[in-house]
Every structure is written in structure tokens, then in C-alpha cells.
């Protein structure tokens, strides 16, 4: 389903078609949860809504590392397939969005998501700063009670040429946003070739075996210096 960004088109007529991807460098993540806080501030979410959630993973050898988990924006998204009303849809830039004005709140997508990335609005969201705020799939603020919301890769930011809130909030530069078409990724400070970043660091996708083809890549490790970038 195509979505139009009327204002954006007016501002920058020959807009490039992106295919957004994200790279999370676990070597750099120190678990400060600044990304989560920035996300909640940007989208007026309550504390319990961690659209990007930082897990502290204990491995079997006794080590531990931090793992931020946004929506994976799977190319073969299970949530998209199970939605009965097509309230969940994929933009032509590969971002999975939720049309909360259509969602019936059946929570089938929450059962289907292998990453637990979806959050149901059991109650009304905290009061938005502007009483005139009109939530849209591209800017779902405030959230609508009785519907499902999730990380939407800050398309309201990227369409304006700004970084997603979590990427710009990350003091460790562990979060990268990239474009698969132009093959470039940036963490706000450094900009590298996306394919090189993935290849040189043996990036992996979480639960690759499920065939969901996530658009979020991870670079394993904890604390090592970043090479190749």
C-alpha cells in the first residue's frame, strides 16, 4: 500500500526511495536505555511501552551483553500476514506501520510477532502535548486506546531528513540507520557503507531461522572496539 507524504514531496521534489534498515552494534551498547527514553518522549508513550527495549542477556558462559530490540521491520512480516483488516501495512520504503484508526485490537499480530515488538494500548495514552494532535500511521501520537502500536522507525523523522529518535539519542553510537538501496548507513557520527558494515563485522539477524527476513541487523559482542568503521 503506498503512502503519500504530501508535505515532504513538496519540500524535496525528487525524493529518493529508501529501503530502510537498522544495524545495532552490540559491542557498543552499554544498556543505558537512552534510546528507549527518547522513543517514549518522541511518541508520548507510557513507561511500559518500550518500542525499542533493551534486554540484558545472560549467556551460558556467565557473560552478559545488552540487546536493544526495536521492531525488526521484517520483509516477510508475520504480523502483516495475520492482520484481519490490513491495519498493519508495509510502506514502499519497507517500514511496517500500523493504521490505528483501522485496528480492531484483536492482538493477533502480538501473538504472531516472534520478537515481542508490539504493544497493545490497554488504557488511554498519557496526555499529548497538543490537544490538536491527529494520529496518523506515520506519526501515531497520541496512541489510540484499544489498538496496537509499535516502533515505526520514526518515519515522521526520516521523511523530514532527521535521524530516528533512538539513533540520535544513542551516546554510544551503537545504533545505525541505513538505506539498502544507496547502501549507506549512519549512526549520526560516522557514515559507512551498509554492506561493508554488515560483511566486515559478520552481522546477523535475530531469529534468522524463522524466515522473517528482518531489516534489523546485529553485530555480536560486548565492549570490543568497532572495526571496519
Amino acid at each position: 500500500m503506498p503512502i503519500a507524504f504530501p508535505q515532504a514531496e513538496a519540500a524535496t521534489p525528487p525524493k529518493k526511495k529508501r529501503q530502510w534498515a537498522m544495524v545495532i552494534d552490540l559491542r557498543r551498547c552499554d544498556g543505558c536505555k537512552k534510546c528507549t527514553e527518547a522513543c517514549q518522549t518522541t511518541h508520548d508513550l507510557p513507561q511500559t511501552f518500550e518500542w525499542i527495549k533493551v534486554f540484558e542477556v545472560q549467556d551460558k558462559q556467565g557473560g552478559s551483553y545488552f540487546m536493544p530490540r526495536p521492531c525488526m521491520h521484517c520483509e516477510n512480516a508475520p504480523c502483516l500476514r495475520v492482520c484481519p483488516v490490513a491495519a498493519t501495512f508495509k510502506t514502499d520504503e519497507g517500514v511496517i506501520l500500523v493504521d490505528q484508526s483501522r485496528c480492531i485490537g484483536c492482538r493477533m499480530c502480538m501473538a504472531a510477532c516472534p520478537y515481542g515488538a508490539r504493544y497493545f494500548n490497554f488504557a488511554d495514552p498519557p496526555k499529548p502535548p497538543s490537544p490538536f494532535a491527529q494520529p496518523t500511521p506515520e506519526h501515531p501520537v497520541p496512541q489510540i486506546k484499544g489498538t496496537v502500536g509499535k516502533c515505526m522507525l520514526c518515519v515522521h523523522n526520516t521523511v523530514d531528513g532527521k535521524l530516528p529518535a533512538c539513533v540520535s539519542a544513542c551516546g554510544m553510537q551503537a545504533l545505525w540507520i541505513g538505506d539498502l538501496v544507496e547502501d549507506v548507513a549512519t549512526n549520526g557520527t560516522d557514515t559507512v557503507r551498509l554492506s561493508s558494515l554488515l560483511k566486515d563485522n559478520d552481522a546477523f539477524r535475530y531469529k534468522e531461522e524463522l524466515g522473517t527476513s528482518p531489516r534489523v541487523y546485529y553485530i555480536a559482542g560486548h565492549g570490543q572496539a568497532l572495526q571496519g568503521a
Partner: peptide, 13 residues
Amino acid sequence: VVDLLGSREMLID
């Protein structure tokens, strides 16, 4: 020099 959410210099090698 790329334009990815702002003008940036992408490392090639």
C-alpha cells in the same frame, strides 16, 4: 558525499 538524513561523508575505504 551522500545525503542520508543530512549530508554525510560515507567511508569507502
